[in-house]
Each structure stands twice: as structure tokens, then as C-alpha cells.
Design a protein around this nucleic acid. Sequence first.
DNA 1: TTGTACGCGTTATCAT
DNA 2: ATGATAACGCGTACAA
Lengths: 365, 365
Amino acid sequence: MKIGDINENKFSLQSFAVPTSGTFMNQRIKLADVARLAGVSSATVSRSLNYPNLLKRDTFKKIQDAIATLGYVPDSAGRALASRRTQTVGLVVPTLDHAIFSRFTQTMQTTLAESGYQLLIASHEYNPTLELNGARALIERGVDALVLVGLEHSQALNELLAQSGIPMLATWALDRSGKSLSVGFDNQAASVLAARHLLDLGHREFGVISGFLHHNDRARARVEGVRKALRDAGLKLPAAGIIEQPFTYAGGRDGLRALVALSPRPTAVICGNDLLAIGALIECQAIGLAVPQEISLIGFDNHELASHFAPGLTTINVPAAELGRVSASTIMQLLAGVMINAPVELPIELVVRGSTGPVAMISKR
Amino acid sequence: MKIGDINENKFSLQSFAVPTSGTFMNQRIKLADVARLAGVSSATVSRSLNYPNLLKRDTFKKIQDAIATLGYVPDSAGRALASRRTQTVGLVVPTLDHAIFSRFTQTMQTTLAESGYQLLIASHEYNPTLELNGARALIERGVDALVLVGLEHSQALNELLAQSGIPMLATWALDRSGKSLSVGFDNQAASVLAARHLLDLGHREFGVISGFLHHNDRARARVEGVRKALRDAGLKLPAAGIIEQPFTYAGGRDGLRALVALSPRPTAVICGNDLLAIGALIECQAIGLAVPQEISLIGFDNHELASHFAPGLTTINVPAAELGRVSASTIMQLLAGVMINAPVELPIELVVRGSTGPVAMISKR
DNA sequence: TTGTACGCGTTATCAT
DNA sequence: ATGATAACGCGTACAA
């Protein structure tokens, strides 16, 4: 082959680049170059990429060889423009700083990558404006689908979603109304489970350490679950018994300190997530309150850590990794044209631990 | 205006879509539509997007109005194809499951978003093949720059990077050779600092709990630092004193159990990251070893948690969030054409805590 | 300051 | 089974 064969209108002195050469070679190779080297039309090369089984074995091989020798890499911009799809999924999360969301993101990314999809992320730190901007940015990038956390969003975001017509998946919650497709679990039922368990143990005075309820429908559902379970038992959760704190260890410590100052003092405390629960545990330890002998603590989310150093803690395990996997595959189905018309509910578990390990697993499903 | 004005070749019965209408309206609006409504050429609309100050105030306003009424959203595929840039940065991390990397990712994303860039991520779980695949996928997506963790990569990945000619940034490490641009800190110097501190306290028997050293140049550098400090003091780190464990709490527990079984038993233990350090702490607590009275523990990374429940732990604070910020802005500079020819080094700190809080902060810079 | 016209790299439609 | 060619939506010389 001659040098000029590569990109008809350029002339270059270097011997044609093999992929293993780390030398300078920035004349980007395109589909047409491959076609010329393989002696076929560019349409055929394109087909070899997208519908390989439409080609004669022989032609396919020739093209594969040409691609290899030239080190051709398809350009996704051209591809996106022509095909109107980017093979890209957008994810908007509150933050990656919480283990549950980073774990969720991690498995989503891995699962999508297995199917050739890439993940574009944005985070909003529980700020609706940032959430809107993030979603808009991802939509502009042409994501084929968008994954959001929770059901409630700003009016502007809902409009943007409706207008863009892009497939959307809500996660970490269930939309029973059927207005949007959702994959998640029942936050309220989970804390009902927790509160019932504590009621069964004889507790009557409850406290809740929650994250900020504003702009967080999951957090509100969790508090609501406690309220409901108590109401069903003829009890009431006093307003003072709900402490809103930032999702940090320090928040958990402060929350517990506030609760033990109440009278009557709660004997049972339900924490909105793992950071809060562990913070509360640390504070108990610091002020010499035995868990669960003197005070029962239930924490949401994944408590690998808590189970190590405070075996008495009861936890509600939230399936963050599983949620990522299921969300990703649900998205893939959507994009493949499969109609899904019911929320996908994942089971949750209440894990009651004695000093030596789990003594009971109560599942909600 | 007439309905047919929007997209010359289509006819639609609906009144033209205002952005606040959540109705069906999926004839995507393009630059030319805006141009027509504003009564200007499409070139002018394009300029209003990219070089607004080249326009007459008046023209600009007209175009803004048209954009607003039509709810126009630029298509990044067309833009990328024409401009050869995607306003997208790729990040390949080992995993988002470790707090340091998710925190790093979080701040990178936020910082990039502030400048209109989006973040595409891939993770590889310390598997070089997955790292290669991830990088390749991101490059195919046309990322304007690529951020990797560490300096050592597979031969194939190095070749891919060289061939693609895409701007690359190495993070979490420093490339003093100047072969690649890097932003990070000196992992080895950090653990020298830690080991010296322990030597000064009179310790002579050392142990190290590390992550797996294979395919992890940062972990190797950390162990090497301990070895070096001991060598300088005329001591030797025995091979049996280096325990490789998975980066988990359980790994830390197992590691500590292995170390205390040695004879002579180490009185000083340096852990490769926070999960390992906290695991080791938990194990100390479980077997009734007082920290730091009976055994001194130093852990890498961010120990907000450890500082809460084990105030005696000395930590090497790794600036994960700061690293994300600096990495992002370094990338932005690179893309703006700024030449950077030295590694960007971030300071690290050894935080020595007494029972009530920090008693010393030893900085390395 | 604004308009004209072409090209970016790929897919898809229609032939053959 | 393969080829020719017209989109896809935008940026940017160059011209005016």
C-alpha cells in the first residue's frame, strides 16, 4: 500500500502507523481510510461495526485486518450525529460522598460498561438548582437515558424531562402512581419494619435522627414510616423526637446528644442512614450508654463497619449495589424497547444482631 | 409566526411548543429553527452561543428570546463533530467503593461542571485489562482529556495513550521523571514521615498492613517508605511484617491478627489505607490491646471516623477532595493550552492525636 | 457585525 | 451482500 492511501488529501513521511507504535501520529484515521485499505465501501465498514452478521465472513475478516493495521477507533461524535444515540447513560445523584451512592454508582457503571454503555455523572448536594443544571447538562450531552434519585424534583426539572422526552428512571424509591418508571425499595415500609420491631421489644419512647427532610423524599418517607408504626400502636412520635442533622458522623453524635436530653428519654432511636447511626453509636460509647441494653439503635443502610465494632446494632440493610445493577439493566431493557410498566421493588432486610452475630433477619417484600 | 416555520419540512398541528409545556413535542429543535425565528443566519446563532460578545446587543437579545420560546437545547453531537471537542473529561479510577476515590471523583465532577465540562467515569477494580478497556471506551467517546490513577499502567494502555495523543493526567502520585503530567502527593515520603515518627517514639518492631501490591504503585510506594525509614535507622522491616490484605475492614482485622502473632511482636503498625486502619483498630479493641499505649497505629487517608471513636490513632491525612479540585483545574488549564511541565505536589499531614484531639501536625512539603 | 457555504465522521436509505 | 449518497446539527473560513 502507498502512504498517500491514508487520508487522500494529506501527505505524510512516516511509515503507516501500526497500533503498537507509540510514536507521533495524529492524523486521525477514519472509516473511509479503513474502507480504502480493505477495498470495500464505507457503508460496508460501518455495517461490519454494527451488524457484523450481515457481511460475508471473508469481507468481515478483510475489514478487521484493516482496522487492526490502521489502529482505527470509531468517532462517537459522527456516530451519535448519524444514529441519534450516544451509548451513554446519565446519572444524577445527590453526592458520591455517601457510601450508598458511590457503591450504587460503582455497580451501575460496571454493569453498563459490560453492555458497551458509558456513564456520565452529575451530583447536586441536595440542591434542586444544581440538580436541574446537572440534568440539563447531561441531556445536552445527548445521554440515551437519565437516572435520577428519588421521585420529587423541581417543577423546572419535571418540565425539562417531559419536554426532552428522554427515557427516565427514578431510583431509591418506588413510584406506585405509575407516572414514572422506578427501581428501588419502600423507604416507608422499611422504617415501619424497624419501628414495629422496637415496639415488639417493648419500647414506648422513640427518637429519630434524620438527615434534612427538605428536598429529600426518601428521608421524609423514612420518618413517616416511624410515625405510622407508632400511630398504629396508639403512640405518637413527638416533634421534638425528630432531630434533623447533616449526614455525617458528627450529625449522628449531635442527634443522639439531643435525644438523650429529652424527657422522657427515648429508649429506641432510629437513624436515617449509616453515618448518622454510627455517629450515634460513637456518642453512646462516649457517654457510656450501652447499646442495645440501655438504648436500642436502628440504622439505615450498609453497616459493615457497625457490625464489626458494635455487634448490638440492628440495621436495615439497603441494597445499594444491587440497586445499581438492577437500575442499569432496567435502563438497558428500556433502551432495547422493552416496555416496563410497574415499579421494580427490591427487598430490604432488618438485621438484628446479638453480640456474636445476626440473630434475626426480617425481610420486607 | 406560522407553524410551518419550525422545521421547514414538517407540518404539525400543535401550537408551537413553549418550554413550559410538558406535552408531547419531540420534533427536536435545532439551530436553524432558532435562526429562522430570530430572523438571522444560523452562523449568527452559533456565534451567540460561543462568542456572544461578537454580536450586537440587539441581535443577541433577539436570539436569546427565540431560544427561550423554542426551548432550544444545543446538540453536543453536532457540536463535537464540527469543533472536534466534546467538553467532556474521562476519569478511570480503581473503584468508587473506597471513600478516597469517591470523594476525589465527587470534587472533580463538581469542579469540572462549574466550567461546563462533564465527567465520564470508568472503574477497573485493580484489573489492568479492565483499566485498558475503560480507557479505550472513554477515548472512543472522544473525551478531551483523560485522568488516570497512578503512574504504572499496562504496556497496551501506554501505547493507546501515546497513539491517541489525548492529554493525560496522572493522579495520586508524582511523576518526577517528567514523562507524564501528574497531580498528587509523595506516597513514599508520607510513610517515611509516619515511620520516623514512630521511631522517634522509640519503636523498634514494625508491622505493615497493606493492600495488594500487585498493580498498585501507590501501595508499593507506601511500603517502600517504611522500609526506607527503617533502613536509615539501621533497622530492617522483615518480610513477614508486611501483610497484604484486601482493602476492607475485615482485611485490617486479619492483618492485625497476623501481626500480633509474630515474634517479636510489632509495637508499631502502619496501615495502607483507612479501611485497613479502622479494621486494625477494631481488632485491637476486640482482643483488648490498647491503642496507642500497647500498640501504635498509623493509618493512611481520611480518618474522620477513626478520630471519633479512637482518638489515640495517628493518621496520615490524604487530601482526596483537594486532589479532585486541583486535578480538575489542572485539566482545565491543559485544555486551555497552558503548558505545565512539573508535577503538582500536594502537601500531606501526619496528625498525632491524644485522647482529646490533635497534639501535633507534621507536614511534609 | 452578519451571512454563505462547506466539512466534521458516521449511519441509513435506496439501489444494485 | 455490497455500494452510492444523502442526511445528521453545528462550527468556521471567507466573503460581504
